[in-house]
Design a protein around this nucleic acid. Sequence first.
DNA 1: ATAGGGTTAG
Length: 652
Amino acid sequence: MALSKPTFLTHLKTLAKPHHRSPPSFITLRCLSFNTPEEAAAERRRRKRRLRIEPPLSSAQRSQQQAQQMSPPKPIQNPNAPKVPEPVTVLTGNRLNLHNKILKLIRENDLDEAALYTRHSVYSNCRPAIYTVNAVLNAQLRQSKYADLLSLHRFITLAGIAPNVITHNLIFQTYLDCKKPDTALEHYKQFTNESPVNPSPTTYRILAKGLVDNGKLEKALEMKEEMAEKGLAPDPVVYSYLMLGCARSGDSDGIFKLFEELKEKKDGVLEDGVVYGSLMKGYFMRGMDKEAMECYEETCGDNSKVKMSAVAYNYVLDALSKNGKFDEALRLFDRMKNEHSPPRRFAVNLGSFNVIADGYCAEGKFKEAMEVFRLMGDYRCSPDTLSFNNLIDQFCQNGLLAEAEELYGDMGDKGVSPDEYTYVLLMDACFKMKRIDDGASYFRKMVELGLRPNLAVYNRLVDELVKVGKVEEAKSFYDTMVKKLKMNDASYKFMMKALSDVGKLDEVLKMVDEMLDDESADFSEELQEFVKDELRKVGREDDLTKLMEEKERLKAEAKAREIEAAEAAKRSAKAAVSSLLPSKLFGNKDESQSTMASESTIDSSSGGEAPVQDGSQGPIEEATVIESVAVDTNSTSEATVADSNAVDTKPF
DNA sequence: ATAGGGTTAG
């Protein structure tokens, strides 16, 4: 039985009261809102939603409304219910043209332009359909542009473009990729409680995999149950993720339990091979190699009825190669390559080559690893950034920096973009080989490319530079990065100490000066003490007091000027209003302009802002959730001075 | 022209 959305209330079994056709919001008000704080909060959000002032209707919507008015009377719908997404049939005429234009921009890899165009269209007479928006979000996700994705999502939410299941899936994926499983779960809860859209099997694949990858196996298992509750068929792929999660946490019992459960649900016939690699791992974990190999024979042997996809094979390859059966893995890999005959049959893919390359590395056969990695092209597979990073990592760990750099060169040739992780691997490897300047070059390159090294990475860089006496150079990296990173006391202190140790106390004072000017920087008490101590060593402790007093004085002066300017602005604003001309037309750069603009206009310059005309009634809960997500795409390595898990990039 | 045919790892 497929449960449709309104029956989500069945979880209120305790109430056991059959409400058949009552309006959802009525039920929730009566029965839900006081059960738990979460439900009370959900009701508050619903109320807010009712109060929300919708952006102006585009002509498309208006005509839709007219059509509704003309159609025969329908049962009265709750006007406050969240909107149902538009069907794909709206993608015709101008809106289809817009869609295709934006797809073209995406194909040309101009995501910024695609996103901007989408935003601008919201208030044109051709509103982007949710399909168009999803296309952009999807492209942003593929390129890890999480901040842009969330920003666009927020924009369309505020603009009242109803999301469909794909939109929600993209958001789940985003939060999970950003290692924010709790935010993903929050979004899921809100989605199941409030959206008229039903989750799809893919929703649960995304959630199960993402939760497992984020170490939330328990929650992932719950998702499997939820999936069943919604009446969705048991999905071997979801089970394979869960079994993999058990394998990672050393729980062989869990693996077998899941396998038996799935088999039972499938009436004893399991022809999808995706779970067998994990099952083999379960046997191997218990030392039951014989049973593992029997399983292998049954599923991958000549008489097998099991459908082995490339991915299913890859799990088996991995199970073999990580359990002392690499030779057998190589034999299977050969068979896979022979079986491979696209487009009819895909028996190998990118992952197969990666697993085998890893297997070679584990045996110390790095030359072979490189060879098999480069063999990919012959099978129309192309490595991605992750694959390159993986192998570069293996080479670096084993002191094969030249080979790692060769691979880095291949990336450029093949048009695969290195990411933060690539550069950090190479930088650290250079440092290990005492090639400090080369390490610094990789760091510089990374920043030049607009990638965002985190604080821990920066700390390692300046640490190495200072160790070899390159304080000047370290300081120049500080100057670059202080604008891009949220530094902490330890990193400020490190730089100050380095400067002080070479007698550059004036530079230390200049750093303090700049910190005092930078509103996002915190010149803490502890840091003040530290600077004073350093100055005291050369009898200059008064210099800090003097500097800080001078700053206070300048700030007070600036404040006074500001107040005066504001008053002048008010006067001129009044004058402008009285002459019935918006001050905007004059292009004034004074405060009166921004005040007035924010109150009345759709400011075309505010591309990054939410499209709320009155500036206040948006769905605060969504905005808050999104803003609470610190998208840290580069917490790549262990922290030295600071915790790399901390959010150390400044807000976008 | 849309939820999936998945994947390996840090």
